[in-house]
């Protein structure tokens, strides 16, 4: 397997590529003035994240990330933008509040990032002796219906509420103009 020259280097380059894709996507998502480009940034970020999942030996999770975030969430958001956004972005914005809220958000983000980093550094992570599951469909299905059944059911309740809410809004929108 490792007979190919510099195979470790190729793997590292692929890892850095996934990482760079994610950071680039996140930067586009935050920095773009056009809403539609921000969504594209989110999609790119999700693709990079899927790459990182793949490096963590979870191909199932990686593909689910693609299917749900790129294929469902981003498409829905783009669809909403198509219905709502005016074509040209408004340039008339007051600088003061923008700077204030932007600075607050930046400070909060840095604080959260630093504390997470500190938590990750200072916790003594134990490496399990063997892989807990093989990441196969069967293992995921069994754990969803046994260990994590509560979370699974809660998510389905959340989705049900969302669907009911959409139905309620659509219904009142139709009867009362």
């Amino acid at each position: 397997m490792n007979a190919f020259p510099a195979s470790n280097l190729i793997v590292s380059v692929a890892f850095v590529f996934a990482l760079a894709t994610m950071v680039l996507g996140a930067l586009i998502a935050v920095g773009s003035r056009l809403l539609i480009r921000s969504v594209c940034g989110l999609a790119i970020c999700s693709v990079g994240l899927a790459g990182l999942y793949y490096f963590l030996h979870s191909p199932f999770l990686a593909l689910m990330e693609l299917l749900i975030y790129v294929g469902a969430v981003c498409v829905t958001v783009v669809f909403a933008i198509m219905l709502a956004e005016p074509t040209e972005p408004k340039n008339e914005e007051k600088r003061g509040p923008t700077l204030f809220w932007g600075g607050t958000a930046l400070a909060a983000a840095v604080a959260i990032f630093w504390s997470l980093w500190w938590l990750g550094k200072s916790t003594g992570w134990k490496t399990p002796a063997s892989r807990l599951t093989d990441g196969s469909v069967k293992a995921i299905g069994v754990s969803l219906l046994t260990t994590y059944s509560m979370a699974f059911e809660l998510i389905s309740v959340a989705l049900l509420v969302a669907i009911l809410g959409a139905l309620a809004i659509a219904r009142t929108g139709r009867t009362k103009p």
């Binding site: 593909l63 498409v75 783009v78």
Partner: peptide, 22 residues
């Protein structure tokens, strides 16, 4: 020959919609 081949096809297939829409 990966174990989640079928899922891969549908995960990537969902990007098509995004392409036409963009």
């Amino acid at each position: 020959n990966i174990n989640v081949g079928l899922l891969l096809i549908f995960a990537l297939g969902s990007i098509n919609v995004m392409a036409i829409m963009l």
